[in-house]
Every structure is written in structure tokens, then in C-alpha cells.
Simulated assay, not measured.
Amino acid sequence: MAGDLLDNQGRGDVRWSLPPIHPEGRKYGLIALAVSLFFLIGLDWEIVGWPLLALSAGIFAFFRDPERVVPQDDSAILSPADGQVTMIAEVEPPRELVIDDGSGIGGLSSDTVTRVSIFLSVFDVHINRTPIAGTVQRVVYIPGSFADAGLDKASEENERQHILVERSDGTKVGFTQIAGLVARRIVPFVKPGDTLGAGQRVGLIRFGSRVDVYLPAGTGSDVLLGQRVVAGETVIGRVGARKLLEGVSQ
């Protein structure tokens, strides 16, 4: 049950179950299912019906929305997405998260920070979650192209949406949902002024995409290139902590 307290002492009650399907995807899955049944039962065209039936199952799987056990640790910055870490770089934050937007609430500093880029394939869960608890200060949508989300230039050229969250102690974390070759729509669940708990759902990107996270100044990555991360569960950094990590691919 959502909200249950689970810990590393074995306390809690966990049972395996099929993950629910997010409402945003149910209509697409049901449409594909109805069309497949029409070809299978109505027209007896199995050569078309069976592939469409498999497609409907794939759509339902794409929009699955599993529960996550979110670490309750104020220093932790959580992964906002499921996927693979494909880039870790020192960069300047996006202009839209830095400039004065007229709200009277400051954005990120223009100083160089660590950016962790997470690529989501069509097989990953595409529900995105907030890396920290706090208040949503900005949600900025930017139209753009649909180049390969794995390219570095996608951060500046592709259709994207920036989100800035600020904790009660003033710590700010910005992250960006980026559309890709297949992804064609970013769906937000939050707006400026919303108060979020760590790991709370903030939106989704329909079909293969990428999410960039801009860690606070002085914070290094706790994940490695090539590592698989889980939204709302994997700690990708700890506020103010920077250490050298090494990994071996095997």
C-alpha cells in the first residue's frame, strides 16, 4: 500500500503485484486493444490482429506506474527517472533555470554544476519523480526538435521542460525532461507553487526520452556512467558531498 513505512530492519508488509497502468496511457492501450480485437474477431485477419494485440500489451507496459520505496534522507538527491546514466558533465545550468523570471523567486546560480543525464528506452518506466522534497518554483516548457535524446545537443535543441524545486532550507535542484526521436509529448503533473514530497510523481514523457539533473553546487555524482538507476529510489548525489567513484564494467 502506498505510504507504508518500509525499512532495512525488515519492518513492513510487501507483496508482489502487477504495477498499475497510469491513466494517461490507459486510453491508448484500450484503443489498440479494441482495434486488435476488431481484426481478430470481426474480420478474422490474424496476420494483422496478433501484432496489434502485442502492440496493445506493449503500450500498457510502457505506461506502467509501479510504487517506489523512497529513502527518507534529507541529504539525498534521488534519480528523477528510470534508465541508464549516459553522461556526467560539469556544465552551466540552463538559462531558463537561472534568469529572473519575474516571479521574485531566484533561480539557480550560473556557476558550473554537475549534470547527470539519464536515458530512458521504450522499455523503461516513463513516470518521472522529483529528486528532492520542496516547492515547485518553475515549470518552463520549450518547444524544439526531436533529435536523438542520447546526443549532448539534445539538452539545448530538443523539446524539453525544465522544473525547479526548492527545499525549505533554500537548496535548489533543477531537472529537465527532454523529448527524443520517438517521444513526442511531455506531460506535466505539477505547477509552480505545488509542494512535493521526495520521489513524488511530477510528469511523464511519452516513449523513449532523457532526463537531465543539475546537482547543487559542491555536489558530485554518486552514480557512474552506464549505471542503471530507478526513479525515486536511487541516490544520485548527496547535498554538499563530492567524492571520486570508480566502477568496472563486467
Rank of each mutant, 00 (worst) to 15 (best):
G3R: 07
L5P: 14
D7V: 12
N8Y: 04
G10I: 15
R11N: 15
G12L: 09
D13Q: 14
R15G: 06
W16S: 11
P19L: 01
P20R: 00
P20F: 01
I21K: 00
P23D: 09
R26V: 15
G29D: 05
G29M: 05
I31G: 10
A34F: 10
S36A: 15
F38Y: 15
F39M: 14
F39N: 11
F39P: 11
L40E: 11
L40F: 05
L40K: 08
I41A: 15
I41Q: 12
V48P: 05
G49L: 13
L52I: 06
L53R: 10
L55K: 00
L55P: 01
I59R: 04
I59P: 02
F62E: 06
P66D: 02
E67L: 14
R68N: 08
V69K: 14
V69R: 12
V69D: 05
V70R: 07
D73I: 02
I77T: 03
I77K: 00
L78V: 12
A81K: 08
G83W: 00
G83R: 00
G83D: 00
Q84A: 10
V85T: 10
T86F: 11
M87V: 12
A89I: 03
E90L: 15
E90F: 10
E96M: 01
L97F: 06
L97M: 13
L97S: 06
L97C: 05
V98N: 13
I99G: 02
D101N: 10
G102D: 08
G104M: 09
G104Q: 10
I105P: 02
G106E: 09
G107T: 15
L108Q: 04
S109N: 15
S110D: 14
D111R: 14
T112Y: 13
V113D: 01
R115Y: 02
R115K: 13
S117Y: 06
I118K: 08
F119N: 02
S121M: 04
S121E: 01
V122R: 08
F123R: 15
D124A: 13
V125M: 03
H126K: 03
N128M: 03
T130W: 00
P131Y: 04
A133K: 02
A133F: 00
G134P: 09
V136G: 03
R138P: 08
V139G: 02
V140S: 10
I142L: 12
P143E: 13
G144H: 03
A147D: 10
D148N: 15
D148H: 14
G150N: 14
L151W: 02
D152M: 13
Q161F: 01
E166V: 15
S168Y: 04
D169H: 01
D169M: 01
T171M: 04
G174L: 01
F175R: 04
F175Y: 14
T176W: 01
T176Y: 00
I178L: 05
I178K: 05
G180D: 11
R185L: 10
V187S: 02
P188V: 10
K191T: 15
G193R: 01
G193F: 04
G197M: 08
G197K: 11
A198F: 06
R201K: 14
F207P: 03
V213Q: 06
D222F: 08
V223I: 12
L224Y: 11
L224M: 14
L225K: 07
L225E: 06
G226W: 04
Q227L: 01
V229I: 11
V230F: 06
I236D: 01
R238D: 00
G240F: 02
G240N: 03
A241Q: 08
A241P: 00
R242I: 00
L244K: 15
L245T: 09
V248I: 13
V248Y: 07
